[in-house]
């Protein structure tokens, strides 16, 4: 192409690569130069909000005087005595664990089935992506209808199957099944993400490996369990990591389907933070919750990476 090196990307065209010598800063061999656009961008965008939230978490907004008053650790001490916060943690954890397990198992199942090449596999692969293409706000509205206690087909089927009752539908009643009602949307929309990634992983398993095991007389289950699954583990760890990070911040479905109810049965951390910041104008407490969620995700992701030895 006519427009050559560097101009488009904004990285200065490197002159001579001096291998083995001390790297000059402006050389193509300096990794930091390559990383700088992304790192500068991410620092700009993440550091500001992070510092802002940390600052706010030690202040509270006085609506009348319209100023932030320094309150020391008050927000943080409130946090740990706040029963709604504890409820939100418990709800969020339930949500993350259930959604993750179902999405991963179901995702693997669908991917394996698709990998066995049924008729019309191309079409099915395309169609299964569709739920992901629905904006979560729209998906929420769609399931507000499908999970509706009176007009909802999904609720109707669940009632027939005896999973929910007339008095305790997916959305409504005292909220016994409300978390399930929200999880249905989550599983519906993001299982395809796991399917895609696992399918890609399956496709990249060298055929020789599979054929060799066939010669050994291993049956389908053995082949899957002993050969394919271990090879998939790396893809899976990354898929799970991304789901984990997003699941902890569940918000959209809650706002649209339940507003955290009935009776706080679906109030997630993100939703609780949202109402504090945006509805009750408790900017300080909202920011405290925001920082908490971030730290929580940080710790979970970090331990996950350590435990599963994810190497980059």
């Amino acid at each position: 192409m006519a427009h050559s090196d560097g101009v488009l990307v904004g990285t200065p065209a490197p002159t001579v690569a001096v291998a083995g010598h001390k790297r000059r800063f402006f050389s193509g061999e300096n990794p930091w130069l390559w990383l700088s656009p992304a790192l500068i961008f991410l620092l700009l965008y993440s550091l500001g909000p992070l510092l802002y939230n940390i600052y706010l978490s030690f202040h509270e907004f006085n609506a009348r005087r319209k100023e932030f008053l320094f309150v020391e650790f008050e927000n943080w001490t409130t946090l740990f005595s706040d029963s709604r916060f504890q409820n939100a943690i418990s709800i969020t954890l339930q949500y993350v664990v259930i959604a993750l397990i179902v999405q991963v198992l179901l995702g693997i199942l669908i991917a394996v089935l698709l990998d066995a090449r049924p008729f019309g596999v191309g079409l099915m692969q395309t169609l299964i992506i569709l739920p992901m293409v629905t904006a979560p706000t729209v998906a929420g509205m769609l399931f507000r209808l499908l999970n509706h206690s009176e007009f909802g087909y999904v609720n109707f089927l669940f009632e027939r199957a005896g999973i929910v009752t007339r008095a305790e539908p997916l959305l409504g009643g005292s909220g016994e099944n409300a978390l399930l009602g929200v999880l249905i949307v989550e599983v519906w929309q993001w299982t395809p993400f796991v399917v895609l990634i696992v399918l890609a992983g399956l496709k990249s398993i060298p055929t020789e490996v599979v054929e060799a095991s066939q010669v050994d007389g291993a049956n389908w289950w053995q082949r899957f369990w002993r050969i394919k699954l271990p090879l998939l583990s790396t893809v899976l760890t990354i898929a799970i990591l991304f789901r984990l990070v997003d699941l902890f911040r569940v918000f959209d479905y809650v706002v649209i389907l339940t507003s955290g109810g009935p009776a706080l049965r679906t109030e997630s951390l993100s939703y609780y933070g949202y109402v504090n910041t945006f509805q009750q104008v408790n900017f300080g407490y909202g920011a405290t919750l925001g920082v908490f969620v971030m730290v929580l995700v940080w710790v979970v992701a970090f331990s996950y990476i350590r435990i599963f030895r994810v190497k980059w």
Partner: peptide
């Protein structure tokens, strides 16, 4: 990990400062 971590902040907390 830093790059990944920029996705950790819940949107409700990031949107006001931005």
């Amino acid at each position: 990990f830093f790059i990944l971590s920029t996705r950790f902040m819940p949107a409700f907390a990031a949107v006001l400062p931005i």
